[in-house]
Write a protein that binds this DNA or RNA. Structure first.
Lengths: 156, 156
DNA sequence: GGATATTTCTGAATAATATTCTGACAACAA
DNA sequence: TTGTTGTCAGAATATTATTCAGAAATATCC
């Protein structure tokens, strides 16, 4: 079940991670391979779900999303967190991440809104609807120094 | 200094966010525009830094990165967190995000490693070198339910 | 209002690329 | 050996990116 990736695959992933819109021809040139061979590998990486998708990083401020916050959500169910709660949280568009975490708190979510009043409004209107939420603890981000979902590609 | 985006720009961003590798021709077809016009807009969005980049989402497990953790880092400097500390944290490849946060803790980082022993090893070898770190509080992620840097595109 | 920039668009030409296909080659197993 | 599988190169062609000239729409200024 474990996917095996050789050095060529890792080279492809490294370059595509840094620039998802690199042309197949450029990629082939950098790897000294035929475009058809590289394309074949990329398609397989997509099929094997090693590549999960291609996304464009948008400057949040340019679309009026200036507030970033992390919220710890404690469930009244204790350690047996229902996945329906997680699904309900994930369904909120402003919620970018939902993590089930170890410890007394149950979930950690990452949320982005235009401003703090919008966040509060959202918490009142949306989070209140979700059952089994006992308490929340919000951490406001003042400044983001680094933010990349850039993974460390292992070297062979 | 504020960038103005019209409805066409937002349509482009929405589609490219979902699929960064959409062809310019397809994009033009969906928007009922000439490819040259769409291309011109995309180039401008890149120039204006509204589009910050294109990235490939890689399944972390496929490259042996199975552990995700958030670490709150308290600085000994109190509220006057030096940016050099942030830079040092950001320089660690495994550290994906560095946020300067409100409250008593100073930084919140998101970090991804192969396993928990690698994380501990990393904290011993890397974090210890960074000056002014008073304490750390680590939250281990058991399961990620949602993870997208997908922003909410405003409607006009 | 009216003249003049400025921006944004279309449409066509061409340069470049993606995609498909065939067959070669190597590694491996029966 | 024989067959299988996977990966590759190279050529053909389908599709696309890119460039450009000019039209249309928008904004700017007097």
């Amino acid at each position: 079940m474990d996917v095996v990736l050789d050095n060529t695959d890792l080279q492809i992933l490294e370059r595509m991670q840094a620039n998802a819109r690199i042309s197949n021809a450029d990629l082939a040139r950098e790897l000294n391979m035929a475009p058809s061979a590289v394309l074949e590998r990329v398609k397989k990486l997509e099929q094997k779900k090693v590549i999960q998708g291609y996304s464009t990083q948008i400057n949040p401020a340019s679309i009026q999303q200036k507030l970033l916050a992390f919220i710890f959500i404690r469930s009244s169910e204790g350690f047996t967190c229902s996945s329906s709660t997680a699904q309900a949280l994930a369904a909120i568009p402003e919620v970018q991440e939902v993590h089930h975490i170890a410890g007394e708190d149950c979930y950690l979510i990452k949320i982005r809104t235009t401003d703090s009043s919008t966040l509060m409004q959202l918490m009142r209107s949306q989070l209140q609807k979700i059952p089994n939420i006992a308490s929340t603890k919000t951490t406001i981000v003042l400044e983001t120094v680094k933010e990349q979902q850039q993974l460390v590609i292992p070297k062979i």
